[in-house]
Amino acid sequence: MKDLYQFFNHFSPLSDNTWRAVQPLFEETFLKKGAFFLQEGQIATQIGFLRKGVVRAFYRTSEGIEYNKHFFVTPSFIGGYASLITHKPTTIVLQTLTDCEILTTDFRQLTALYDNHGDLERIARKLAEAYFVQKEEREIDLVLLDAEKRYEIFQNQYPGLEQMIPQYHIASYLGVSPTQLSRIRKKISGR
């Protein structure tokens, strides 16, 4: 739980009183590689704090084609945020790409603490703002940057991840084919 406490405090100081209220809400969960934290069509109720491992967020078309939207690496929160807020079925899927250790909690129980623990609400707001900025930057990169530059940004944002996950997941995330990614990698390594 120490890593969760440090993560919260990275965004804003968390009082001892708030930590005593938050800590019992989380329980340790272990998911094997390939397991699902959230499946398409589910209504999300849980969020998780990723302590160890890698999780991908992706969409699947009606033809079964998958598009990777995001990779979650340690430490980060995971969950179907839109579904958590709207209480509607999610279109996003969260799947582990490695064995994962996750601290999970019921989203409603956690957010119920906001009224009496303003420091927790402030942390949640700052976290949501950080994810919003990250999402907006990614959308801009996909539209304005070429694949080679997007790959370089991926390498900077996720150091070491290439050695942990299949290349086709990276290609999907970058919006290119595995063959195109191979050419980009070859070009960059030849410099």
Score class of each variant (00 low, 15 high):
Gln167Pro: 10
Ala147Thr: 01
Leu25Cys: 13
Gly118His: 04
Ile123His: 10
Trp19Leu: 13
Pro24Tyr: 03
Gly48Ala: 04
Arg51Lys: 13
Arg191Lys: 11
Val55Gln: 04
Ala124Cys: 14
Phe26Asn: 00
Glu121Trp: 06
Gln155Met: 14
Gly34Pro: 03
Leu84Gln: 09
Leu14Cys: 07
Ile140Leu: 12
Tyr168Asp: 01
Leu14Glu: 04
Tyr158Lys: 08
Phe58Val: 06
Leu25Val: 09
Gln167Cys: 08
Asp16Gly: 15
Leu142Phe: 11
Leu14Phe: 07
Gly53Asn: 04
Thr96Ile: 10
Glu121Met: 05
Gln46Gly: 10
Gly41Pro: 12
Gly118Trp: 01
Ile165Met: 14
Lys69Tyr: 08
Asp106Ala: 01
Ser83Leu: 11
Leu50Gly: 02
Gln167Arg: 03
Ser12Asn: 02
Ser15Trp: 15
Gly79Val: 06
Leu103Ile: 00
Gln23Arg: 02
Val133Gly: 04
Lys135Leu: 14
Ala128Tyr: 12
Ile92Gly: 00
Val143Arg: 12
Val93Asp: 09
Ile184Ala: 00
Gly53Gln: 02
Pro75His: 06
Ala82Ser: 14
Glu129Ala: 13
Lys187Cys: 12
Leu127Ala: 13
Asn17Gln: 15
Leu127His: 14
Val93Thr: 15
Ala57Ser: 12
Thr91Phe: 11
Phe7Asp: 01
Ile43Met: 05
Gln6Pro: 04
Thr105Ser: 05
Val143Phe: 12
Ala124Arg: 14
Arg185Gly: 09
Pro159Val: 00
Lys149Pro: 03
Gln42Gly: 09
Gly175Thr: 15
Glu139Leu: 03
Phe7Gln: 00
Gly175Gln: 07
Ile102Pro: 03
Val54Thr: 12
Gln180Leu: 03
Asp141Gly: 00
Asp141Tyr: 03
His169Asp: 15
Arg150Pro: 00
Ala124Asp: 13
Thr91Gly: 15
Gln46Pro: 05
Tyr5Met: 03
Thr18His: 05
Gly160Ser: 08
Gly53Lys: 05
Ala82His: 14
Asp16Thr: 13
Glu148Arg: 04
Gly160Thr: 15
Phe72Val: 00
Leu120Gly: 02
Phe72Ser: 06
Ile92Thr: 14
Thr18Ser: 14
Ser182Arg: 05
Thr98Val: 07
Phe58Ala: 04
Arg138Tyr: 06
Glu162His: 01
Ser182Thr: 04
Asp119Met: 10
Arg60Ile: 09
Val54Ala: 05
Phe37Ala: 10
Phe72Gln: 03
Gly175Ala: 15
Val176Met: 08
Ala147Asn: 02
Leu38Asn: 07
